[in-house]
Amino acid sequence: MPAAFFDVMSAAASLGCVAAAAKIRILYFVSEVFKMRKYLITMRLSASRAFDGGLLYILSGYLLKSACLFILLMLWRALAQQGADLGGLSLDQLLTYTLLAAIFGEQLNVLTPATTAFWEGAIISRYMRPLPVLAQLMAETVGSWLPGLLLYSVPTLIIAASAGLNPGIAFLANAGTGFPARGLLFLISLLLAMALGFAMDFIFASLVIYVKNASYQAYQIRRAIVSLFSGALIPFTLLPWGMGRVFELLPFGSTASAPLLIFVGTGNPARLICLQIIWNLIFWAAALILFRRSEERLVSYGG
């Protein structure tokens, strides 16, 4: 590895450090206000785990993800070039949709450490801390997103913009004069998608405990369902027979497709957000009930 590479990376790292340090200070200020320091330190530990292996190793995973994204973008471009009807989406919108799905990939398909903790028998340790179990799991998950956001999402956005694919500009163009409102709606929708993702993951974890050694199989089923029904990989508008309209109403659609459609400006924000709120209410109620019911089993099996 040439020394120049390390110099560049060191400089980048230093800039990143400053930004990250500033970010952390702000977060600590907020934490003092909301008494959230205990969650922030959990998030920090969770985030720092990924940094322990060296740059080459952490970047290799992101490089592979970038390759995947690039190829998918090229495929959509090729599809548009052959004159295909993209179901009301322009090529720019389709590309932006795919780009956003990739850079918010972890937020649009929430995977908490809950299920893994059951497999490993490590859930018991979360019960020995003076914090709510679900909140700890959420803090760990959010912490684990930080390296990806910093080292994959931000660089991908910059590279995409330099290659002529700027989601911000596309967003502005589509949002028109209603930008602030639409921007706010996108953020609300993204938060609701993440919240729904957490609820779904907790329900999944609560159910997986009943199938014990078949938990991997259960995970496979979940992965299969999410990849098709969330709309993150293939936008619903590209599906035949009006399937997309049905999928949009399903809860999985609310975890990924809804905020992406709002961002690219083709979805009806009010309708999509209402749907997200309804699914959140239903799934959170179910998650809390199921998790409570499974707790005894979780602790005895996980311990």
Binding site: V211, A214, Q217, A218, Q220, I221, A224, I225, S227, L228
Partner: peptide, 12 residues
Amino acid sequence: LTILADIAASLS
């Protein structure tokens, strides 16, 4: 469950 999972994964 295993077989169903595999089939679901492969079909999806």
